[in-house]
């Protein structure tokens, strides 16, 4: 048994504060986790495209001066609701996990 929708939660969480393009989404995951959550950057694209197909994020191509257009993603209402749900699930999962393995202080007590 494990917590499966991890990457989906991370991508949605990265977009929580506002629209980002792919590189910034992976950077946000890395920096917010202080480099604890490292993965191949390209892992986020299949997740982003699936979330887009499911209507949890929307994407638009933004023009850049002197550069090719850039695809920028933002959360939809359903995406926000899904993230809330994932947060609750994660909290429940983490609490269950802690209940079993205990915290450092509790195990010494």
């Amino acid at each position: 048994m494990g917590y499966k929708p991890t990457l989906e939660a991370l991508v949605l969480g990265a977009l929580w504060e506002g629209p980002l393009h792919g590189y910034r989404v992976s950077l946000a995951i890395r920096t917010k986790s202080e480099d604890a959550l490292r993965m191949g950057d390209n892992q986020i694209y299949p997740t982003l495209h699936r979330l887009e197909a499911e209507g949890l994020v929307v994407a638009e191509w933004q023009q850049q001066l002197g550069k090719p257009s850039r695809k920028v993603y933002s959360l939809t209402g359903s995406g926000r609701a899904r993230l809330e749900q994932l947060r609750k699930e994660w909290e429940r999962y983490a609490a269950s996990f802690i209940a079993v393995i205990g915290t450092g202080s509790a195990s010494h007590a």
């Binding site: 993965m39 191949g40 950057d41 390209n42 892992q43 694209y45 299949p46 997740t47 495209h49 699936r50 197909a53 499911e54």
Partner: peptide, 20 residues
């Protein structure tokens, strides 16, 4: 390398499009 294996990305993207 940090970006990741192209084969894996292609497989995952193909699966992501396949689902809907």
């Amino acid at each position: 390398r940090q970006f990741g294996d192209p084969k894996r990305m292609a497989t995952q993207l193909s699966a992501a499009y396949e689902q809907p």
